[in-house]
Amino acid sequence: MGLALLVIIWLITFFSTYFFVAQTWWLPHGAAKAAEFIDHQFALTYVLMGIVFVAAQGALGWLAWKYRDDGSSRKVEYSHGNTKLELIWTTLTAVLFVGLNLMGSHVWASERFEPAAAGSVPVEVTGMQFAWYFRYPGPDGKYGRTEAKLMDPSAGNDAAIGLDTTDPAAKDDVVTGTMYPPVKREVDITLRAVDVIHSFFVPSFRFKQDAVPGLAIHMHFTPTEIGEYEIPCAELCGLGHYKMHGMLHVVSQEDFDKWLAAREAEKQ
């Protein structure tokens, strides 16, 4: 049975590790500025944890086989442990874990502590059962007022987020169901939710943030590649959670300007 255990544990270790190393299933291609840092930290953590994983599982299988009761008269080492070894092990783990943590912290700080840089594109993202709406403030740079009692999800866009059309600031607000950010410019998003918690998740951007009713959460990211990206909702929000799905079309600056101008023209 010792040998069987060795084989089983080593095989499990081999296959688990193989699919990680071969990257058969891996993080989607990174298409935002943060992806590079996060992927680096991920790879570092992954290598270190991978070594510990293989070492621990390998040792477990080996010890089980090597020290099986084979009926021989071999003596068991009578020992209650080794305090020095314990201390070395504890220190090493503490250094490894805490060090790893500190290494990643600056990325978190730059992502979450600092506000978006000047000149970024403001977009308000509103989640509701089961759709995302995106609002651009228009030339005045100000979001118009929204009212809870005006919200009508069945009417879509402006009405869905309850835009108060009597507010002058709301006149030039553009509300869409698909997000169009320009490439290589920071996007300053304001996350809101009208009913329950949703989560704005763009796997390719390594971006995720819950949208919480009662809060307006400011976040920012910078897309680096033109393309279409999916936004699956990542917080359980009700029966349609699996189909709460938005699209993000990253376009060039010219296309963005053209697109926004066309939307503004539609409004008039």
Partner: peptide, 20 residues
């Protein structure tokens, strides 16, 4: 095996892609 995926999730930056 279960424990070693913990340090991924415990780092806020890595939790961004992995959370939920």
């Amino acid at each position: 095996s279960g424990g070693l995926s913990g340090p991924f999730l415990a780092q806020p930056v890595l939790d961004i892609p992995l959370h939920d």
